[in-house]
Simulated assay, not measured.
Amino acid sequence: MHTETTTTGRRTFATATQAREHQINQWTEKQLQTHIMLLARRLKWRSYHTHDSRRSQPGFPDLVLVRPDRGVLWRELKTTRGRLTRDQQAWLNDLTQAGQNAAVWRPANLLDGTIQKELT
């Protein structure tokens, strides 16, 4: 069996897939957001993101995605190690208790297919 070795920075990976997974897990929220918004647009979702959250209600979710045949998704985006603030958790809890689809997406959710599944 042939094993391909790929080097990313100082780390060596057995496969290109492992190298890509490592890279995605290092993404910032902005990188994750950009990828998700491009995917959502391709899949015909309307999206909203507050560009300057300093003038917005604290904790309001990063993304609101709407598609008439699928409903509304409220998503807070976090890095692999990012933590929710109390206000962010309160928004997600209130939205969920109101019957809305509200959750957190992280790079791992892109890798495990969760984001793709929820958007298709």
Rank of each mutant, 00 (worst) to 15 (best):
Q88V: 01
R70E: 01
W27R: 09
T80H: 10
L111S: 04
K44M: 13
Q88Y: 02
H51A: 12
D52P: 02
R70C: 06
L119W: 05
L77C: 01
L63H: 02
Q57K: 05
G82T: 07
R106M: 13
Q33L: 12
I36Y: 04
L32D: 01
R81L: 14
V64T: 15
T15M: 06
L84C: 12
L65E: 05
H35T: 13
G99R: 07
W27Q: 10
Q26H: 08
L63Q: 05
P61D: 08
T8V: 15
L65R: 00
R11V: 10
M37I: 03
I36N: 00
Q89I: 04
R42T: 10
E4V: 12
A103Q: 15
N93K: 10
A108K: 10
Q116E: 11
R54Q: 14
T3F: 11
P107Q: 07
D69W: 05
Y48R: 13
T15N: 02
R86E: 11
Q89C: 08
Q97K: 00
W91K: 01
V64K: 12
T114V: 10
N93E: 12
L84V: 11
A103Y: 06
W105Y: 08
T96A: 10
R75N: 02
G99T: 03
K78W: 04
F60H: 03
T34H: 09
F60R: 04
D87V: 05
A19F: 08
A40I: 06
G59Y: 06
K78D: 04
H2Q: 14
G9M: 12
N101L: 08
L95F: 00
H51M: 11
